[in-house]
Design a protein around this nucleic acid. Sequence first.
DNA 1: GTACCAATTGTAAACGCTAACATTGAATCT
DNA 2: AGATTCAATGTTAGCGTTTACAATTGGTAC
Lengths: 337, 337
Amino acid sequence: MKMEKITISDIARLSNVSKTTVSRIINGNYGKVNKDTKERVLRIIEELNYQPNTLAQGLKQKTTNVIGIVLSKLHPFWSAVLEGVEDSCRSKGYSLMISNTGDDPELEVEQIKSFMQRKVDGVIVSPTIHNKAFYEELIERSYPIVAVSRKTPNVSLNTVAMNDIKGSWMATEHLLSLGREQIMLVVYPPNDISPRYERVAGFGMALKAKGNQQSWVEIVDEKPGMAKQKIIEVLKEKKVDAIISTNNILNLEILKAVKESGLKVPEDVAIVGYDDPAWAELVDPPLTSVYQPAYEIGEKAANRLIELIKNTNKTEQETTIFEPKLIIRNSCGEKGD
Amino acid sequence: MKMEKITISDIARLSNVSKTTVSRIINGNYGKVNKDTKERVLRIIEELNYQPNTLAQGLKQKTTNVIGIVLSKLHPFWSAVLEGVEDSCRSKGYSLMISNTGDDPELEVEQIKSFMQRKVDGVIVSPTIHNKAFYEELIERSYPIVAVSRKTPNVSLNTVAMNDIKGSWMATEHLLSLGREQIMLVVYPPNDISPRYERVAGFGMALKAKGNQQSWVEIVDEKPGMAKQKIIEVLKEKKVDAIISTNNILNLEILKAVKESGLKVPEDVAIVGYDDPAWAELVDPPLTSVYQPAYEIGEKAANRLIELIKNTNKTEQETTIFEPKLIIRNSCGEKGD
DNA sequence: GTACCAATTGTAAACGCTAACATTGAATCT
DNA sequence: AGATTCAATGTTAGCGTTTACAATTGGTAC
């Protein structure tokens, strides 16, 4: 299992053919090369465990079979997305470069540029809504890129995302139908990031439809622990009979806050989580929650990107929206509670 | 913000210097170039938004500033490791290629080879214990590689991992000291993967120390849901007064199984989780669990790898072991329960 | 025997960069 | 003045591939 730094020239020399012929064989251009030489060369390649230098290939061919993914953080939702992306990429022969930005808009473009400099064939990104100009430029150059789990108003990126309005809408509807009236939607600062403001919007729509005016949106700080603290305060001061989470992490903060406040779920306060965590059925009471098919989103995003990379024709903007599901357990009680 | 495919030659031509000079400027070799030309060239680079082609650089320089990471899966533990790796890499100017193998030994070497073909500067891997020969070869060629969160007997890889014996040992000790006697350690098939058999070993050691002979190891199938089912069966047939989990996923399976079996925690059965999940304090009762500093492990692994890449001298094998912590909540009750 | 063709293989340039070595011109030394 | 040095810049080859274009060979048709 020798693996020295042998090049195509070595193979060529040792098998008495030109580099061209070896190259043809490497690339499966068998039609143009004699069966005997092919076998001889393949044997030598095998023996020396020769692996073509991908950098050189990329330099010459303008394509690397690498795609880059830029996302915000690695909490469970994104991990699942990433797994979908990864599986799909590997099965199609692409390698993956990854980078997290923590939703810093500048880091976002910096990382994409860095990937482009490395000549990745395309990029998957969970974009903030800034960087409009940057993305427009990419589109104009028809650089393969797809936005995942985030939408970009004013920029028509290829997109694979959730119906986020519907997610919070369903949650709100559910609570209202159970007679809850002072509902608090807890959300991180929603301005930069589409799912957040869509979830706020869906909440508002559902309230308006039922004429509810006692519910409100509580915007909380993103620093770990801050949300919990804030919620505890609010819970002391205001009448709250239901809480809706808007993501993975807030699920935890909300549940902890409620627990520490000594309130009973669902009697005192009903809770709807977001993102249906794996432990949802283990807490007491089991958490009603909005499910999102994260893995499938990732998979689809990767597939779409690869489509863009390969097909120079199927390139018109396309948006795929997945629908969330409300998984009802016991954290909202039943009608009349 | 034009970003056509401009090369170093364009910059050179437009600023009336040779490519060499431009190259010197790009690479910060300012000492050797006149201040005026430097500024002129930098301005043109800026104007045209020139970005050096990293493939070409890599081809020439034999170094890419990319590192590859090959791990088993993306459950929460590995996500946290990955975040540590990623942060550390980015802060030091490295990009990251990622790949999951699901602990398939063949895929493991396949992916590493693929990374090497792409000329990554080094690799972080969560290895199975197979592939001894392969890793030995890498070591012999002094290829920079570090094993993360897994140990490789017979192969002296640079390693950053946990004291896994101690983790289960502490859990077992804790349970024994509380008077539990029929303890079941639930584990996925442990043969290929060091933390698993270490956790089995730590369990055995603690039992032996106290002369306990009624406890046992329950090996369960890795397919989702299988563990839960098996545990439910066992719970019916045998007397079990404590269960120890050995990872993230098993935490969930065990808790679900116990819940479905209608047993009371900790009265009927005590439980110790592994990996201290974010939701540990939210379940009822809050889960006692073994904490592992996943992020720090990732960080350290990346740092060590980068050290190996840069320092051709500090290259002797080195193993860093982090210590787990037992976080006691209420799932094991108190003495005398 | 000459012309033509297909099959197989080779030559050489190019991809975009870096670096060893060479060149230039002016300043400094003796 | 001639030799020496130094700062600034350039020439050129090469990193490991691919590929347009040639070249060689033997066979076939006339």
